[in-house]
Structure formats: structure tokens, C-alpha cells
Design a protein around this nucleic acid. Structure first.
Length: 274
DNA sequence: AGAGATACCTGGGAGC
DNA sequence: TGCTCCCAGGTATCTC
């Protein structure tokens, strides 16, 4: 699944192929991914220079020279690859962008959880209004224990739900949330507002740590993508708690349990996560 | 307004 | 072997 580091990777690799180029044609092959794809047929998206690629959270933004922008989200199975225009289309390539250099950029999304939106920017370089509410980047200096504590104060929702809320911090998925709560010794069921500053510091440290490990482990994906063959890399993360229901806790050997929190599986050790 | 539930979708694994 | 069922995931939207 494209996590935050992988979207960054996609952005960097894609830049070389599309920056300062134009799309000459856009084709869609299904009506709807997460949202309708018909807006991609807007002629304003073609024959305008691609000015900049940006990442915000798990969103990729491609900005054109006419205030138009494309916002990509890859859901859990989406990807972009750049291949020659005459290469046969794969089953789940739902949108094909023809580039003025003979290549195509293809949006592949088997589970259709991803999306492509179009938007009009208020100014060059502006944040699309759709993304204005997003919280801080987890690897930035803004994401500190103090910041987290401030955002959690007074919140009654569970801590796991809170750290997965992208209005607070972007890019913390279910696996990261489970793992970083385990490493911090905090139960996912804890009321967010009761987490102390000290625990917030720990949580921030472990979220960053887990992300950094994911980046390191994602190296294969990076290499593959740069070769533009689009093959998926092995995203390997050392998991302590995720998916380990019924197994002994690696820290205290109590039995790991699973609970549904915010509609998602929460794995935790009742012995050492309080 | 805050918080929780749900829809969206399909590949893949489990169970029969 | 082949069938059915259910689950995973992030976001937007709905309801309470």
C-alpha cells in the first residue's frame, strides 16, 4: 500500500517524466473510482505545462500553468507508472495520461479506493481547498509532543482514532497506529484527552521511528519505480503487534488481543499497554 | 460541534 | 477442486 514515504517516492520519480511537459490526451476506462473520473475529460487539463509536483499527506498534487491541478490519492492499492504509449493497458489502469514525449502516465487502482480529483487553485503554488484542513506532516519539525498534546486536550475519542485522524497528523495508517501505540505502552482504547505530555513525546518519537523504518524498508519500491517498470516492492516492516492476536506479547508475554476501534482492528497487549 | 458508523471496492485467504 | 463468505484499507459523508 502506498504509504506517505511511497507517495513522496512516486512524486520524485514522476517529476523527471512529466515536469515541464504537457498532457496531450487523457483517457478513462471506468466511470467511477472512489469518485467519478469524468472531470478528467476537461480539455483545460491538456496542453498546459506541468509546473510542479507536490505531496501533502498521502495526496499527490500535479499543478498546471493555468491554475488547474490534479489531486491523486492511491487508496490502498493504487499506483502510477510511466510507460510508452503503445504498451498494452493493464486490467486496472483506469486512467491514462498521454505525455507530449511519447510516454503515458497510468493510474492503476485494482480496489478502486484511490481517486483523482481536479481543482482550480486560487494562486500558483496554493494548497487546494480540498486539502486545507490537513494536519501536520509527521516527519516535520511541527510534529512534536507538545503539538500532539495540544490537539488531544479535551478529546473524548480513543487515542488510536485520534492519531489516525489526518486533521491532526497525516499519514498514520492502521498498522503505524497499532505499532507506535504498542511501542509507547499506550492502550489504543485510552481516551485521547488523558494522554500525558510525556506520553505524547513518546508517541511522536515512535510514530516517526516507525515511518523512518518504513522508508528504509521501502527501498526496493524506490528502485523499482525509478526503473519505471511499475513493479511493486516489498514493504517490510518489523511488526510487534499488528495481526498478532492470540500470540504472546514480545515485551511482557501476556496475550495480544484484538478489538474494533473506529471500525478498524486494534491489536494491543492488555498487560503492558495502559 | 464532536464522535461514531458506514459506504465505497476487489483480491485473497479461510472454510466448507 | 471449486464455491461462498468475509476481511483489509483511507476518506468522505451521514447520523446522532
Amino acid at each position: 500500500m502506498p504509504e506517505l514515504p511511497e507517495v513522496e517516492t512516486i512524486k520524485n520519480a514522476l517529476s523527471a517524466h512529466v515536469l515541464n511537459h504537457t498532457f496531450t490526451k487523457i483517457e478513462i476506462f471506468i466511470d467511477v473510482c472512489r469518485y467519478p473520473l469524468a472531470p478528467l475529460l476537461d480539455k483545460e487539463l491538456c496542453n498546459h505545462r506541468i509546473m510542479e509536483l507536490r505531496r501533502r499527506g498521502r495526496y499527490l498534487i500535479i499543478e498546471l500553468d493555468n491554475f488547474r491541478a490534479l489531486i491523486f490519492h492511491f487508496g490502498m492499492s493504487g499506483s502510477l507508472r510511466v510507460v510508452p504509449a503503445d504498451e498494452p493497458r493493464r486490467k486496472h489502469e483506469h486512467a491514462v495520461f498521454y505525455i507530449d514525449n511519447g510516454m503515458t502516465m497510468r493510474f492503476d487502482c485494482p480496489r478502486r479506493f484511490g481517486f483523482i480529483k481536479t481543482c482550480v487553485l486560487s494562486a500558483p503554488g496554493a494548497v487546494p481547498s480540498e486539502l486545507a484542513e490537513l494536519g501536520v506532516e509527521p516527519l516535520s519539525d511541527e510534529f512534536t509532543g507538545k503539538y500532539l498534546k495540544r490537539r488531544l486536550t479535551g478529546r473524548k475519542q480513543k487515542i488510536k482514532t485520534a492519531i489516525m485522524d489526518n486533521r491532526i497528523v497525516v499519514g498514520v495508517g492502521n498498522i503505524y497506529a497499532n505499532e507506535s501505540l504498542f511501542l509507547s505502552g499506550i492502550s489504543p482504547l485510552r481516551e485521547a484527552g488523558t494522554i500525558t505530555l510525556r506520553q505524547c513525546n513518546e508517541l511522536v518519537r515512535h510514530i516517526r521511528d516507525t515511518l523512518h523504518k518504513a522508508i528504509a524498508a521501502g527501498g526496493t519500491t524506490i528502485a523499482d519505480f525509478k526503473s519505471v517498470d511499475g513493479s511493486e516492492g516489498k514493504f517490510v516492516l518489523q511488526l510487534n503487534i499488528y495481526g498478532k492476536e492470540g500470540k504472546p506479547c514480545p515485551r511482557c508475554e501476556d496475550t495480544i488481543v484484538r478489538n474494533i476501534v473506529g471500525g478498524r482492528s486494534a491489536f494491543y497487549c492488555p498487560g503492558c499497554q495502559k
